[in-house]
Write a protein that binds this DNA or RNA. Sequence first.
RNA 1: GGGGCGGUGGCGGAAUCGGCAGACGCAGUUGACUUAAAAUCAACCGGUGGAAACACCUUGAGGGUUCAAGUCCCUCUCGCCCCACCA
Length: 896
Amino acid sequence: MAATKKKTTTRQKANPKKVGSNRAVKAKAAKKIVVKKKTLPVKRSAARKVVKRPAGAAATKRAAPRAKAARAVSPVVQDAYNPQVIEKSWQARWQEDKLYRSVIDHSRPKHYALTMLPYPSGDLHIGHWFSMIPPDTRARFKRMQGYNVLFPMGFDAFGLNAENAAIKDGIHPMKRTFQNIERMRRQMRSMGTMFDWEREAVSADPEYYKWTQWFFIQLFKYGLAYRKMSAVDWCPKDNTTLAREQVIGENRVCERCGTPVIKKNLEQWFFKTTRYADELLRFDEIDWPERVRTLQTNWIGRSEGASVIFKTEAGDDIEIFTTRPDTLWGATFMVFSPEHLLVDKITTPEQKEAVEAYKLQAARQSDIEREAVDKEKTGVFTGGYAINPVNQARIPIWIADYVLMSYGTGAIMAVPAHDERDFAFAKKYDLPIVEVIRPEGQNEAGELQVAYIGDGVMVNSGPFNGTKVNTEKGRKNPGISKVIDWLAAQGIGKEAVNYRYRDWLISRQRYWGAPIPMVYCEKHGWNPVPDDQLPVLLPEDVEWKPTGESPLKLHPTWKDTICPVCGGPATRETDTMDTFMCSSWYHLRYLSPHDDQAPFDENEYNYWMPVDTYTGGIEHATMHLLYTRFFHKALRDMGITEGNEPMMQLRNQGMVLAEDHSKMSKSRGNVVAPDVLVNRYGADTVRAYIMFFARWEMGGPWDSQGIEGTARWIRRVWTLFTERTRPGAASEQTKKNLRRRVHQTLRRVTRDFETFEFNTIISSLMELLNEMYKAREEGAAGSPEWNEAAEIYLKMLAPVAPHIAEELWTNRLGKPYSIHQQMWSKVDEDAAREDMIEIPVQVNGKVRDRVLVSAEADEDEIRTTALASEIVRKYMEGRQPQKVIVAQRRLVSVVV
RNA sequence: GGGGCGGUGGCGGAAUCGGCAGACGCAGUUGACUUAAAAUCAACCGGUGGAAACACCUUGAGGGUUCAAGUCCCUCUCGCCCCACCA
């Protein structure tokens, strides 16, 4: 009884081909594990015996233990569940066998499952697991359904964090980033995902960013990349732009010298995303969450109206956009944004001092401060006047910070009678208010107390007096429509659509990004770096000085180059690209990450694209998810990609919160470290708990105690499949019930995988396990029904807990390796059908009894049975039923 | 100010087509096993009343539709998220 018995948990590698690599050697070492047997309780000991590997499993065989490995593992009860051993060994085996390699296979339907790639911050946290594991289980499920699945992973490796850290401690961002990536890769491998690492792409790798640069050049050649002036934060003492992070405190001072930061117009590179604004508003081809569609729609912020040209007294055009051209006759003044280009020209000498002071003050405020709703409006008169083109009225021009340079044209016509903001401004500065829309039926208006926004009839509006207008925008409003036609006929305005959406600012005055591959020559202006000179490599010999300047600018020689047109001296662009540029096309790089002839291989594209399922956080709704759609559409128009959308289905996971419902963050010290959990429980348990503890699409607070339940379940799975029980003589009913539960569960689990409802997959599997324990108690073990149940159970478990499922399938049940190459079982609907159903019976809306009827019973039969119930009759108190409703064989409702 | 999501036991959550509310788990209580603990196993576990049978109440609040509402409609309320002087 107490005899020590040795065994290995897995096989020895039969094929020595790959033994040369470090990984293979390490994996082999991990495989040689001896498990000792200790005294066992009498009852169970008889049952425990290792199931021998069938002769047919050629790739594996039992191996003699080695002394070293025997010492490495403390003696444990034989066959106790030991995830640390089986997980490492199966991971090594799968890797050696290239089990998760995805190659084009036209005989199978493809499924491209993509999950947002992480930034290599250092350590994998529980949020990464939450975003990666459920999609991994689903990708595995799809694969078992017969799809050829591509499920790649990579790193969004450029970015500010590594550079800021470098300024602090001098460690080169490249070194830090690639070290972090190596660590995260190791951590990711412990998760047991089916990532195809041969397709890994790292955006900071020159073989990757060569193509990011190439795409920039294509966009430039196609006219979608351009330079323009843009207001950025600027430190006047250090003469440098500052990143948002470098501007600190409410006073907005430079983090280094404490000087107040101002806005300054600088030339920057932009992408013309706005050209696609209308198309980006269409979602009819894609299955994306309503929430994301709404966020994108609001972000793009389309509004219809008119563009009208006012004139300064000196004759300069002032273009404005308005959604209310019907109120043009009520424009009594104009307001410019303080940054408007005409401000200096129109300002009179008497007003110059006040205007300059106001501009300085406005420049120091953040957008957020400037846009605060309840802030009282301020402004300054410029001394200049404009001519209203509809009635030639001479109206004063003010500047005020409530007019934003970044929206519309940076200048508005102010109609105080019909706009709340203009009204407040006019009241404060005693400017005239002229009513031009009057509620219908009202003859004489007194002094307006508030701006009037509703329906009405145009008054004081020259040729349009008496025209009815409502509150509809654009052409849908007949009044506005007429005015627009008239403006166009007069040549002073036209119909116009304006967007909140702005062109994408690409330039970053930073080192750790893909250099913008452009060259400036005095004679020939801006030209792209020729293709054969790509990539424009980041120089490694740079210094980390806390100057706020990009090391690329400070590098003595890097920026010196020759003009691609004339061969004369020229200068490189020293700005790098926004990292969202890198992530706009990473799904394409996965197709052929090492291709040095093209950004992606055409055959791979034709087979795998578009992405079938995209998963990630909703925080990217108006950034990455919009950029990547723009990018795809632009490439489509250039003939590089096909189809209108890159990602057909999108699903967003929620956020994992700390146990006290607060956000997890390093500074709070409440981050859950998955490595510790994996060491303690094994990856399979952590995977299952990740799926179980909250609704995936909602997220929720972490509960460190809750994982015990999932751990218990996994151990019970292990016990059920490793304990040998005498075949019993279960009744036909027991066996039939077992089959029914198995197929009902299979139906449910299949559906839940399809619909991303991962938590109920686990609860269904827990329930079925409980049923199987009961059935075994009743003697079902060893029957064909039992064997079918075991097989289907492990297959359903396989996507969730791939290691234990493989161990039990291959090594314990002796079924053909690998469970991950098995086909998903089909639901036997006949088996899943109930033969007797219990139907609750309500009397006057309250459930009073439950009656048992045959599943084939028709309505009459159910009704008769229900009314025959003693209890039901008692509650009817002798009255005749007014109405008896038999609802879908699910319930009987008696009304008396 | 606008838009969105949500509120179900002590906790996470289930109820997928308007049809038995509280599946599955955590925590808790009791018992078995143990020198003991852990692990495991068995039972209980929304509230009120009751010895019990059982009755009544219960899905943020109020109202409505319906034989029947967590689910549909209206009003309100609380929490979270996004946008926000958008001309």
